[in-house]
Simulated assay, not measured.
Amino acid sequence: MLPTITPDKIDLPAGTILKFPGTLADYEHLLKQLGDRSIPRIRFRDNHILLMSPLPEHANEIDIISDLIKALLRYQEKDWQSFHPITLRYGKKPGLEPDACFYIDNYQAILGKRKLDMSIDPPPDLAIEIDVTSFTDIEDYIALAIPEVWIYKTNELHIYHFTENHYIETNNSFIFPDFSVKDIVPHYVDRAWQVGSSVALREFNDHLQTVF
């Protein structure tokens, strides 16, 4: 199946990445054309437009990682509001589409909002990217100043903290300081592939009850 991009239709086979020159106006037009569709993903970088259609592997991994985060938040008795995926924009600047994001400390500030504008709304506390067919540049997130960004790639979790207008990679999470998420996440993502997501999540919940 070949990619299809017309004024009325955008259709990309799973795993496809298209990169072509474009302007911010072109990006705006494509955003409007896509509307609320979550696929394909779109990004504007260095006067180029990237369109990405994730593989099933991508969807499975973001689901289990999101479920693990929710389990940890429940264990910590914290409330949250999550989105995946969502386009985050600062005014008219090009947006980003993390695979998932979580409002935790600021979750009450965005309750009931159907669309978010980073020029007036607080950024998420956590954004997550799954790199299977695509490549996430952490520098793209500087404009949004999201406090913590996770990038999961080739069975490894990379954790980035925003500080002094740049991101630094670290081994620990500010959000879950009592948990080794850098080890937990890859282990249970792998378990999900082996035994299924629901079984892996039950194992993780059992682990929380017996260890902590």
Rank of each mutant, 00 (worst) to 15 (best):
M1L: 08
M1D: 11
M1S: 11
L2I: 08
P3S: 03
T4E: 08
I5C: 09
P7C: 12
D8Q: 13
K9V: 10
L12T: 02
L12Q: 01
T16N: 13
T16C: 15
I17P: 01
A25Q: 14
Y27A: 10
Y27H: 12
L30R: 07
L30I: 15
L31N: 08
K32H: 15
L34W: 09
G35H: 09
R37A: 13
I42M: 10
N47C: 05
H48P: 00
H48V: 04
L50T: 13
L51F: 06
S53R: 06
E57P: 00
E61C: 10
I62S: 08
I65L: 05
S66G: 14
D67P: 00
I69Q: 04
A71W: 03
L72R: 08
L73M: 01
L73R: 00
R74D: 12
Y75A: 11
Y75S: 14
E77Y: 08
K78G: 08
K78Q: 15
D79E: 14
W80K: 02
Q81T: 12
Q81C: 11
Q81H: 14
Q81V: 14
S82V: 08
S82N: 14
H84G: 15
T87N: 15
L88T: 01
R89D: 12
R89C: 14
Y90A: 07
K92G: 12
K93V: 01
K93A: 12
L96A: 06
E97F: 12
P98N: 06
Y107M: 10
Q108L: 15
I110G: 06
I110Y: 03
I110H: 01
L116E: 11
L116I: 15
I120K: 13
I120D: 02
D121W: 11
D121E: 14
D125V: 06
L126V: 07
A127N: 07
A127K: 03
I128N: 10
E129K: 06
D131V: 04
V132Y: 07
T133I: 11
S134I: 08
S134H: 11
F135C: 04
T136I: 02
T136N: 05
I138G: 10
D140L: 08
A143D: 15
L144Q: 03
A145G: 06
I146N: 03
I146Y: 05
E148V: 07
V149Q: 00
V149S: 03
I151T: 03
I151R: 08
K153A: 11
E156T: 15
H158V: 00
H161E: 05
H161P: 05
F162N: 09
T163C: 10
H166V: 03
Y167H: 05
I168R: 13
T170I: 09
N171L: 12
N172A: 10
S173N: 03
F176P: 00
F176M: 01
F179R: 07
F179C: 03
V181T: 10
P186E: 02
A192L: 06
A192V: 04
W193Q: 08
S198K: 12
S198C: 01
V199S: 08
V199M: 05
V199P: 00
A200G: 05
A200L: 03
L201Q: 05
N205Y: 02
D206K: 13
Q209D: 11
T210R: 15
T210N: 15
